[in-house]
């Protein structure tokens, strides 16, 4: 379970995230949407303890990220928006390193790394330096690293960027399987079709404020775009544009 408690972040005089209150239960796939600059990545960085909030906190599976960061992080896998890795390590070495950081048993690390590399179709290039990988391969390696320690919470910031259609499909299947196993998935994405397909609930952030929260049906009701009255406009895209005011602005 993920709990945001009055989470707020200010940079100088501008408020990037404004008093975010939100609870995401275990096993849910939560879609986090918003226009560019809405504060999604800042929220995720605070959730992962890599950025200090101005006030408020995030509780990951009962562990406050500010008070017990190690315990909270041990529960969580993280895929950032830009998969910067150690270019001079091989894929296998990187996964061994990450496995060690998360306290996996030495004996399990290699087996787990091989399984993940195989699952993400990277085993053949496991011993090559990361600097020779394509963007998509780095993205898949980052996903493998996030899953190494079998996290109970998975936080993904734009995970579909750089993945080919096959990779995207595999990731969607993996996320559904993880959620079925009780893993909470927090998914920030610009791909509205992915959110529509995968997410149990969706939160829309605009200018740092959570302007909408609920299932797709609930959001459609809120935007007064019932499928039965306007089926062509009933897409999440329409809801998103209506709720964030982007439609009017354009």
């Amino acid at each position: 379970m993920i709990e945001f408690v009055e989470l707020r972040k200010e940079f100088g005089t501008s408020t990037v995230v404004e008093d975010l209150d939100l609870i995401i239960p275990a096993g849910e796939i939560f879609g986090f949407l918003g226009p560019n600059g809405a504060g999604k990545t800042t929220t995720i960085k605070m959730m992962m303890g890599v950025l200090e909030p101005t006030s408020g906190t995030v509780i990951l599976n009962g562990h406050d990220i500010a008070k017990a960061p190690e315990e909270a992080k041990a529960q969580t896998g993280y895929v950032p928006d830009q998969p910067a890795l150690y270019d001079k390590l091989t894929g296998m070495e990187f996964l061994r390193f990450v496995g060690g950081l998360y306290g996996l048993d030495r004996g399990d690390i290699d087996e787990r790394a091989r399984d993940l590399l195989e699952e993400f179709d990277m085993l053949a290039r496991a011993e090559e330096l990361i600097e020779t990988y394509s963007h998509g391969m780095k993205q898949r390696l980052t996903l493998s690293a996030a899953l190494m320690h079998r996290p109970r919470i998975l936080v993904l910031d734009e995970p579909m960027v750089g993945l080919d259609p096959q990779g995207g499909l595999e990731l969607r299947q993996i996320l559904l399987a993880l959620a079925a196993g009780g893993v909470t998935v927090f998914l920030s994405t610009h791909s509205l079709s992915v959110a529509e397909e995968l997410c149990d609930r969706i939160g829309i952030l605009d200018a740092g404020r959570l302007v909408a929260l609920g299932s797709l049906d609930e959001l459609q009701s809120r935007a007064a775009l019932r499928p039965e009255t306007a089926p062509r406009d009933a897409s999440l895209e329409s809801v998103f544009l209506r709720l964030t005011g982007t439609e009017d602005r354009e």
């Binding site: 303890g49 890599v50 190690e70 992080k73 993280y78 830009q82 390193f97 950081l101 690293a145």
Partner: peptide, 14 residues
């Protein structure tokens, strides 16, 4: 550590 600093910061490592 470069831009891979996030790897250490996201890990359960004080």
């Amino acid at each position: 550590e470069g831009r891979a600093w996030w790897v250490l910061r996201a890990a359960p490592l004080s």
